[in-house]
Design a binder for these strands. Sequence first.
DNA 1: ATGTTC
Length: 498
Amino acid sequence: MTTTTQSKYQILPRGEATAILPTGSKHSPITVIGTEPIRSSFDELCLQQAINSRTAPGVTNLVLNPDAHGGYGAPVGCVLVSPTHVYPGPVGVDIKCSMSLLQTSLPADAVIDKQTRRALIDAICERTPTGAGKGQRNAPKSRHVEEALGKRVLTEGASPGVCRELGIPVEWASRCEDSFHVGHDDSTGALALRLEKLLPHIYQFDAKISQLGSYGGGNHFGECEAVEVGDDQRSRDIAKTFGLIDGGIAFLSHCGSRGIGHSLATGQFKSLQAKFEQWDIPLPGKDRELVYAPLGTPEANAYLDDMALGANFATVNHLLINALVLEAFQEVLPGTTGELVYFISHNIARKEIVDNRPAWVHRKGATRAYPAGHFALKGTPFAETGHPILLPGNPQAGSAVMVAEAGAEASCYSVNHGAGRQLGRKAAKRELDQRQVDQSFADADILSNCRQYPIDEAPAAYKDFDEVLRSVKSAGLASEVARLKARFVIKDGDKADD
DNA sequence: ATGTTC
């Protein structure tokens, strides 16, 4: 933390959590989750964005998570709560970027043999392409989606009809944080009207629809995992409710709403920025990416509708990927079955009850964390345990399945969304050695579809996962139920068969 | 993150 920013706020220690209060501000302080080494890693941009966001119109709470860094107007790794306004920045360009986990019936030793793993990698890549712009024509065994079905995906999300059309088990919808999103007036009809209005302005809509069932690039991935449930009885009981099988094979996916979410989000940024300029409204911290709209205005309605359209695509994208991955397993290892453990987002605004009133909870690089007994889990399979939290770490340290604790109330029922970057992409390319990275994967016996593992995505480019988990645990937000250890990874990079 | 230079 530099002196320039330090003069702008006071730090109020609160056990493992800390609060930041902008000097002279009447706002309640920003809650910061993280051990001291984590807190001191926040840079100037991140803190400035946090202060801008906290003091922005209609914002009642702001939480910074241990993996926070600079983002669009608001930090990535924050929770922004407003009962009166919506903010596109704290949702971001990849609307409803999410994690999902599929538990298969296979024991870990069924996926030891290298030839079997290679066959699985090939079978998965034939169905779920990686890379920017890549859609179904790059994957011969993907599902072909006509424009009419694509429109239903955007407006209905994972409805029973859409699931049946795509060969997605209908019951997987009950394993989603949200299986569908409605428009600003809580109707699906509003989304259909909005989509028809938008259609002429969306560049290559058909190409974007054909991206259904694809990973994209960057930090997105698919990963075959060996499941290691914790030794204690509580972890074993919770794992059973979650549907996790100790010593079994699962598949973890990270992806979002692809080109369609990107174009919906950037369209909203441009349109709101033009209006702020036209009306000469000052922006919080003069940040062009911290535009907002008061609820009930045509601008807020349009944003909520576009966010829902993107979120519906992301939801069906994840479920289709899981269906296609299961199909790939069944092709290579006939008789394999699979069940969705959970699907949960880290880039979305949801209407929740905060301090006894409805508010939009924007989670940007933050994961919802409802503990056992939370009223919103009533009637779900997770009412008595809390819902699964899927926290990606890295292929070598593993990823974690966690469950929220009562202490999560302090973070507006949220935890971080992963390890967070240690090195920027440029720094990773400069400082890390490709041969060492590839050797570390070989040493850990982790295969990949890439000839060379993308160096800016190497485990060493991310923060120490155990330190990140300590932050979450010591703040009383969540505890670990199981660790997932990678057996092979699907990433966007130089393909092994090129 | 992204139709990776509308």
